[in-house]
Design a protein around this nucleic acid. Structure first.
Lengths: 153, 153
DNA sequence: CGCCATCACGCACAGTTCGTGCATGCTTGA
DNA sequence: TCAAGCATGCACGAACTGTGCGTGATGGCG
């Protein structure tokens, strides 16, 4: 069971994934050695999936991001697995979630430009035998973007 | 201009935001001191927006995530700014993007359960004077989820 | 009520990492 | 051909990290 210190560590780690036990200790008023133990335990318990650098898209040549809503031809587990494998092999697809409602899946994709977005959509996504329809929306502006889950501490 | 070493660092940092110069040097075949310099330079240049721990939602009491598509009553900059401020103050809203197409905005939200999702939707989002309509889809399954942008190295 | 066991804590310390000064080699331009 | 600039690795000092150990608090049991 996570106590108040654990939640504080996790909350701060979501914002600052790069701090170590010394700085964490200063922030939550615990010694560095105790923070080191708790941080290791939280990792070991699987409460942290991973630590990631979040980049400026422009820096790595990403000029367009979009959402793509898909409906699928079949809802069989085999078709789902086949599509999942396909998606896992496409670096341009950052996220893929199965949804309730009209669309079956929602993808979040990142490409260099409209040309490569069109190529991804036409030759990889719509070309997949599992896909019935695709409806895409280009991201015009990022109002908010965080990986931080709400934590009550 | 980013060279091959820089791109390798960024690519690995997206996967492993927690490694230091020693480990990075082993991975990309450069000395730890040179990696330290390059990593610091990449941060200073703003190519890295931040480092974040990505948590297991269950660990912090998040049991439901959903997308919410919004249409807005007005498209004035004032209304946009007002809504942006509102969204910034809601920890449950992880992402908010302005889109082309039928919907004006797409939100990605995280809540404890359906009850608190309903409360967020009814009392915070739909209650905002800027919002015309909202259409939500619960996430049933996460097929893929990464913050890593595609990088050609 | 007292005792014992367990757990969380901070201190001390050894090992490792990190960041920087310096020397060297390579490349480019004049 | 020479000089300047840049990238590199080595050496080293400072800081960090992780672990052993002792201590105190808490809870349960007799």
């Amino acid at each position: 069971m996570l106590d108040a210190y654990d939640l504080k560590i996790l909350a701060l780690w979501q914002q600052r994934g790069d701090i170590g036990p010394v700085e964490m200790g200063e922030a939550i008023h615990l010694s560095a050695s105790q923070c080191s133990r708790r941080m290791a335990a939280l990792k070991k318990a699987g409460h942290v999936r991973g630590f990631h650098a979040v980049l400026d898209p422009v820096a790595v040549g990403v000029g367009l991001m979009a959402y793509v809503l898909l409906t699928m031809k079949s809802h069989s587990p085999e078709a789902a697995d086949a599509f999942r494998m396909r998606i896992m092999g496409l670096d341009e697809v950052m996220e893929c979630h199965k949804l309730t409602g009209e669309a079956d899946l929602i993808l979040k994709v990142a490409t260099r430009d409209l040309t490569s977005f069109n190529q991804l959509l036409s030759h990889r996504i719509l070309a997949a035998p599992e896909v019935a329809t695709a409806r895409s929306s280009i991201i015009l502006d990022e109002v908010k973007s965080t990986t931080a889950l709400p934590i009550r501490v």
